[in-house]
Design a binder for these strands. Structure first.
Lengths: 347, 347
DNA sequence: AGTGGTTGTGTAATCGATTCCACGAGCCCA
DNA sequence: TGGGCTCGTGGAATCGATTACACAACCACT
């Protein structure tokens, strides 16, 4: 593959001049410029990004470490991150942690070794020494969706509390009183926050959240199935299960179906994170939708601000409830007189 | 961040010795080794992968350009690719082409500029000059799922012909005679092959595939919806629609539902590519399942063989039919006496 | 004692870019 | 005419690693 020296030789100039042409430095004569550009075209020359990075100490690359690529929420996030990064002149290397802290560490280490310009993380745990050190050492970093408390790192996330209150109000209105939750890992902020929001919302209606109705999952489908089976085995099973993410909801759906029960009569279901498939499941699933694309874009903007010397801002956007049929009430065929801001999907 | 010079100074040796210790070169004294390792630990030194790549001309990185990240098939593929690559000591940079040739080109160019060791591509079209040149110039490359004819590049893919024949036999047995297909772009191999396999299978039953029953989609949901609406507007609409990928099937499901019809009574549906959600849709969707994980792993192995000087092999694995309820017959509650190798899912 | 071989180490070249600095040419103005 | 500009250019240092080569020290043989 041709290098800058070959181009310089072909154009009859020095490598410095070639570099200046390529970087649009003003003081290059028109004559030299055309000769260089001709040589570049003739040789099919492309600058070696590795060499450039070594010299300039910038890779124009962002690292994105997400918790689980098979989760459509994170896929959509990754997509919007890549789009916004591309628009700003950066590429993205994605690391999939699969909800495993040691894999997350592997990717963070790998990305740091590659001298990425900045790191976007949705941590699977409270943070390894590696990540904490990197943050404190000044590696540009932004947390997205989940975060690690106590670090001076901007956070871009959705606030689901209002939507969870709406959801609980909706469930209460439908007559449900025994409400259970499948929580995520307590080490993640989204794992604990969603439980707290749910518990607080229940309290507003004078309802408690007993331990037996608090299942511990890991944000993956299998745990949703396992926890739901436990609920169904209780002497007094819950009437509704609220899964803290879409994959655990999928597992719950499996478990209900495996018992020969139906949603919502046997057990009603709601989920955090809305995805296109929820419109088509049997029945369509009531969910709390995050503004995923907006979160990804905002996270990239914050990170690039940090990298380029501007001051990054944390961003919190509201999530919203999307009512479908998995909790009992058939979606109204026409707008009801409901004064609440609950949205109804078209499904 | 500490460099090799800092380590050398701290350990009281030359940079060459540090490098030897790090690369496990045999002729280093035990004494020097321990001093170097101590300095490495004390400084928290990590080798700069950028500098190393420049010198060795290897990045230990594979590029993966996929057609659409939002398609669960490709997500699963990407995941297995990353896993296998990691096991073999490589990282992966994913580029999402979104079924747009110019975006595909952008990513290929970007990856080549970064001097990735090899490229895994699932082409969205017949191949741009850039990609053809790279292949001919000797860039290690492997095609996965889709390929470009006429290039000497190994191909790792699934052969769906047998499964399509089984599907058509299944549909015929259920009494369906008017069968339509939503094809992918003719520029992709999977776009044209699936139509050909379908047409050939129909011919075995004495059925034709009229133009009116051949819809042209682009592998994304919206096109599935549009084509299906067209089918439903025909004076004599088809009884079954076979979507050439899962997203177009999702679009078809939308279109059917929007008309107030139901699957399979209003219109039966089958899809190429099976995904976890198809078990939970209303009704569960009959699909042709590819051995996705195996494909991803085989593709990485072929590419790494090529990179490391061994001779890569093309691989073709069979796809298989998974019968569910979207074509009419309720899944049998117990194994039938069917002598055919058709698999039945547990849904 | 001299020869040859092994072992451990350092010096310096190298990868492909960017960029500081020096220098010559041309111009303007005093 | 000469001093000070600006402009265009090339030489060379530099980024952080790897590695060819030279060499010193040591050992083992003849």
């Amino acid at each position: 593959m041709a290098s800058i020296k070959d181009v310089a030789a072909a154009a009859g100039v020095s490598v410095a001049t070639v570099s200046r042409v390529l970087n649009e430095h003003p003081s290059v004569s028109a004559d030299a410029r055309t000769r260089v550009l001709a040589a570049v075209a003739a040789l099919g020359y492309r600058p070696n990004a590795v060499a450039r990075s070594l010299r300039t100490d910038q890779t124009h690359t962002l690292g994105l470490v997400i918790s689980d690529v098979l989760n459509p929420y994170f896929t959509e996030l990754a997509r919007s991150v890549e789009e916004e990064a591309r628009a700003l002149g950066y590429s993205v290397i994605i690391g999939n942690a699969d909800e495993r802290p040691e894999l997350q560490d592997h990717h963070v280490r790998n990305l740091l070794d590659r001298r990425i310009d900045g790191l976007l993380v949705s941590p699977t745990d409270g943070g390894s020494p590696l990540m904490l050190d990197a943050a404190r050492a000044g590696t540009p970093m932004v947390f997205v969706d989940r975060w690690i408390p106590g670090l001076d790192v901007p956070v871009v996330r959705a606030d689901g509390r209002a939507a969870v209150r709406e959801l609980v109000a909706h469930l209460y209105r439908l007559g449900h009183r025994r409400l259970a939750i499948i929580a995520g890992p307590a080490a993640t902020t989204t794992g604990s926050e969603r439980v707290e929001a749910f518990r607080a919302a229940l309290a507003e209606h004078g309802l408690a959240l007993p331990d037996a109705y608090t299942g511990h999952g890991d944000f993956q489908a299998e745990s949703g199935r396992r926890v739901t089976e436990g609920f169904l085995d209780l002497p007094e099973p819950p009437e509704v299960v609220f899964a803290a993410d879409n994959l655990m909801a999928l597992g719950a759906l499996d478990a209900v179906r495996a018992r020969g029960l139906r949603v919502p009569d046997g057990l009603a279901l709601a989920a955090f994170d809305d995805i296109p498939w929820f419109v088509h499941t049997d029945p369509p699933v009531t969910a709390i939708a995050q503004p995923t694309g907006e979160l990804g874009r905002a996270a990239v903007r914050a990170l690039v601000d940090r990298i380029e010397g501007r001051t990054p801002r944390s961003v919190t956007l509201p999530a919203r409830l999307v009512v479908r049929r998995s909790c009992g009430e058939p979606a109204a065929p026409f707008p009801t007189q409901s004064p609440s801001p609950v949205q109804r999907s078209t499904s």
